[in-house]
Design a protein around this nucleic acid. Structure first.
Ligand SMILES: [Mn+2]
Ligand SMILES: [Mn+2]
Ligand SMILES: [Zn+2]
Ligand SMILES: [Zn+2]
Lengths: 140, 140
DNA sequence: AATTATTTTAGAACAATTCTACACTGGGCT
DNA sequence: AGCCCAGTGTAGAATTGTTCTAAAATAATT
């Protein structure tokens, strides 16, 4: 689906900044980025956008359901372009965040939600030490 | 184990503030508290302690392995007196954090850690909407 | 008692995020 | 084309949980 329609379907007008930021994120690759990452990506792509707009836009994307907020670190918020239910490998040293591949992971014995409560999400985070496979700076 | 020995075993001198804060936390009940919670508990117990010392002490307890840091919210850090591997129910509206009872929950199909990496922890957070059972303000 | 190391503290600093308040845009309407 | 106006974009201030600093208090050691 073209980004313009995706935004409109999500109830957001296809404005220049939203198209620019969305273009950086929704390119078919599953991405895990911080607001700063996005600001850097924009700068490198020659897109002039304020940090406030980066935050506004990411929050609007989350509210619209086309981006997911992931919390696993006190001092940075990750945004995930993969909005389906899935789990994560978090490399605490480097800050790299990777999807757990496929449906490899199953959870059994989930407690039933008590009356008046509902399960919104079940999130598994595998916290890793060391370095992820083929990510980050390789010699060169 | 008495708190004094517990601190010494953990490599921490049994100072007045550490004993006071430890006394509030390590009473046999599994607790999930924020630094502010601890400051409030101290105030109510007539313990005069600065917020800086609350933070210092909680961080020292974490470093010593007698307290666990839990991150599931951008703007508060929870500390857990249950340092064993276990999982959580998080009521996003109220901020209540509950242990998943017993060993009810099993995870299958964990990916193998790649060379040079190690699994430090596997954490499951069940994010709930609504209100937890018999917690918070009941009529009275 | 003097010396030294550790602890405790108030308040400043920090940093990610949000807020405020104003400027800018752009499409619908005449 | 020229207004209108809601929605958008922005700079910079504000917020807030946490950490840092640097000095005072306390405890241990000689
Ligand atoms: Mn912060
Ligand atoms: Mn904060
Ligand atoms: Zn993901
Ligand atoms: Zn717990």
């Amino acid at each position: 689906m073209p980004l313009t329609s995706q935004l409109q379907t999500a109830g957001l007008r296809a404005t220049p900044k939203r198209l620019a930021i969305g273009g950086l994120l929704f390119d078919g690759v599953d991405r895990h980025v911080t607001a700063d990452d996005v600001a850097d990506m924009a700068r490198k792509a020659g897109i002039k956008v304020s940090l406030a707009t980066v935050y506004n836009t990411l929050n609007q994307f989350v509210a619209a359901g086309i981006l997911k907020r992931i919390i696993l670190d006190t001092d940075r918020t990750y945004f995930d372009t993969n909005v389906s239910d899935h789990h994560h490998l978090f490399y605490e040293t480097s800050g790299d965040l990777l999807d757990v591949p496929g449906d490899s992971l199953r959870i059994e014995g989930l407690p039933a939600a008590p009356e008046g409560a509902r399960v919104r999400a079940v999130e598994v985070v595998i916290r890793m030490s060391g370095t992820p496979v083929s990510t980050g700076s390789t010699a060169g």
